[in-house]
Amino acid sequence: MRGAMTSLPHYRAIPATDLVIRPLADITLLYHRPSGQTHMVASPVPEILAALGAHPLDSHAIHARLATCYDLGDPDEARAAIATHLAEMAALGLIRAA
């Protein structure tokens, strides 16, 4: 169990100056300065971005942070969903693998 926990990928935020975040009523707009790309994202992506800082975190640690503010339902399902989002966000350059 301990080995499985330590093998989870860790992520950290990219520099705050690299990302312009503009929440609209229903979705959030992101402008990624390094690529010049615009992304339209919905929950939980903005919440994951807000939870991440310079310190590397894995999906379990992010789940623990988000669970203090949001009702995330079944913990295992929520952690798996967060892990999928993290991988997608890293592929887009919105966060960085640590």
Binding site: L24, A25, D26, I27, L29, T38, M40
Partner: peptide
């Protein structure tokens, strides 16, 4: 039309 849909259609 909500702002998100407007943004998408206008881009």
């Amino acid at each position: 039309v909500d702002p998100g849909e407007c943004f998408m259609r206008l881009t």
